[in-house]
């Protein structure tokens, strides 16, 4: 496979990757369908922003955010079933059960662990130790600016954590199971080893004092943009959206079976950090996963970082002991 040169890299030499927006297929069908799948994403985003901006204090609470979040995901699963982007990514009963198992772990065990060692606990300890007040001047900024800052600060952290996971072996061990997914669906973001899911959730937003409404607005950016990372639906996403935000196209390149392509598009909600730091590839891929698309089972996902880490360490030690210098000394 020849691949395509993007900057200094050859993309698509190992597995097919479509590079360039001009080569991405458009939504097919009648005018109503095309209209819906062109304007759905911006419409939902701006509607949710307007809702959180103007909702009375009694409604602007976390419970409302949870209800909206779950309803939105259910709606998107429905759209995936009716209008899949790739039939090879079609959501099946077994895949849905597998994905929901990981989602369930996130809402139960991980949430419990987070109370003790999550970013909130760490930041609280630091603030307590240094009698360090939060940066309270943030609350004087316009709400949308606060929301943007929360979202960008969190995403900046996620970008580097994610990039670190692809470049530093101990972190890669935790992240690798997530790259064994062979298709993208709404809940695939939750699929992975719990250690990774814990690490990727760490943020420094707790150091800042924001108005609760700003935090809810920032959350809605994650919901109405970030959720599309793992979706099996084709949209005619607007150009400005594709320039600013991470899309399922970007993320499919990141999950591609092509090694070089998988080392791109590290952002979560925003793609602008990838553009800034030279890791963005605009395009899409259909063949996803590792080892030619081997599906990793739950049992292996849970232990992979430890078994693989043990294996690598053992091999390293054996290699060191087998060195010619060592043999002579012996």
């Amino acid at each position: 496979m020849a691949g395509v040169r993007v900057g200094n890299r050859i993309i698509g030499a190992d597995a097919p990757v479509t590079v360039g927006w001009e080569n991405i297929p458009k939504v097919e069908g009648g005018p109503v369908k095309r209209f819906i799948f062109t304007y759905f994403q911006p419409f939902v985003l701006f509607s949710l922003i307007a809702f959180w901006y103007y909702a009375p204090n009694s409604l602007a609470v976390a419970t409302t955010a949870i209800i909206i979040g779950i309803s939105f995901r259910v709606l998107l699963i429905g759209i995936e079933l009716i209008n899949p982007r790739h039939k090879s990514w079609q959501l099946t009963w077994k895949e849905l059960c597998t994905d929901l198992f990981y989602v369930g772990l996130g809402y139960t065990v991980l949430r419990m662990v987070d109370v003790y060692i999550g970013d909130g606990a760490i930041i609280g300890a630091i603030q307590g130790a240094y009698d360090w007040d939060k940066f309270s001047w943030f609350t004087g900024l316009p709400l949308l600016v606060q929301a943007l800052m929360i979202s960008l600060i969190f995403d900046f952290g996620q970008y580097w954590m994610h990039r670190g996971m692809h470049n530093w072996y101990p972190l890669w061990l935790t992240h690798a199971p997530h790259h064994y997914i062979t298709q993208l669906n709404i809940n695939k973001g939750a699929v992975g080893n719990p250690v990774e899911l814990f690490l990727i959730g760490l943020g420094i937003g707790g150091f800042f004092d924001f108005l609760p409404r700003a935090a809810l607005l920032a959350g809605t950016l994650g919901l109405a943009i970030g959720t599309y990372q793992h979706i099996n639906v084709r949209f005619n996403t607007p150009k400005w959206w594709r320039f600013l935000f991470n899309t399922t196209e970007h993320h499919s390149v990141h999950h591609s079976q092509d090694f070089e392509a998988s080392r791109s598009n590290y952002g979560s909600t925003w793609i602008i950090f990838d553009r800034l730091f030279g890791t963005c590839i605009d395009g899409e891929a259909e063949k996803l996963g590792m080892e030619g698309g081997r599906r990793m089972q739950i049992s292996e996902t849970m232990v992979y970082p430890f078994t693989e880490g043990y294996k690598t360490t053992k091999e390293w030690v054996q290699r060191r002991l087998r060195r010619p210098g060592n043999a002579q000394t012996a």
Partner: peptide, 18 residues
């Protein structure tokens, strides 16, 4: 008492903090 919303938010009619 929480500080008032930024003047832009006041103009746009966002509800004041509790």
């Amino acid at each position: 008492e929480p500080q008032q919303l930024n003047v832009i938010d006041q103009m746009l009619g966002a509800p004041a903090p509790e």
